[in-house]
């Protein structure tokens, strides 16, 4: 794993501000760890930064917490787990799917739908949160990873 970068208070606030603007999220329940330039991991354990760093100096760390979001230019795209963990706080830019659309979405297909929205939207089917898509004028681009897709 690339060296861990545990975000400080200001950096975490910056992420929270973006998530608030995009989805209405007010609280990130844990430490945010950045891997590479884009991937954000959420750690809710009781090890503090010092303990994690100490462990990292002792043994190679391959992962901390769960991948929950990715920085994409000035925006943030939540992963499937990101939308599920934060579901109770997400109150804007939600796109509700029907059963047929959900099937297409979980097969990794883009949806040819005019949503009237632009940018990342949280995909939802009933009480299931299915990650984010990117809405443009005529479609929603799909980011479901291959390992999580329904097979034909």
């Amino acid at each position: 794993m690339n060296q861990l970068k545990i975000l400080n208070k200001n950096e975490k606030q910056e992420i929270l501000n973006k998530l608030n603007k995009q989805f209405g999220i007010n609280n990130i329940p844990g430490i945010i760890v950045k891997r590479g330039e884009e991937k954000l991991f959420l750690f809710s354990g009781n090890f503090n930064e010092k303990q994690i760093k100490n462990l990292e100096r002792t043994v190679p760390i391959e992962g901390v917490g769960v991948y929950f979001a990715k920085l994409v230019k000035e925006e943030i795209r939540l992963s499937i787990e990101g939308t599920q963990i934060l579901k109770d706080q997400i109150n804007q830019n939600i796109f509700e799917l029907n059963q047929e659309q959900t099937n297409q979405w979980m097969k990794g297909q883009e949806l040819n739908i005019k949503t009237g929205k632009k940018g990342f939207v949280v995909m939802k089917y009933k009480d299931n949160f299915l990650g984010c898509g990117k809405a443009s004028i005529e479609k929603i681009t799909n980011f479901i990873p291959k390992s999580r897709r329904l097979k034909n």
Binding site: L42, G63, G65
Partner: peptide, 9 residues
């Protein structure tokens, strides 16, 4: 969705 784990190798 396990968020309390550190993986070591």
């Amino acid at each position: 969705g396990v968020t309390n784990t550190i993986i070591t190798k």
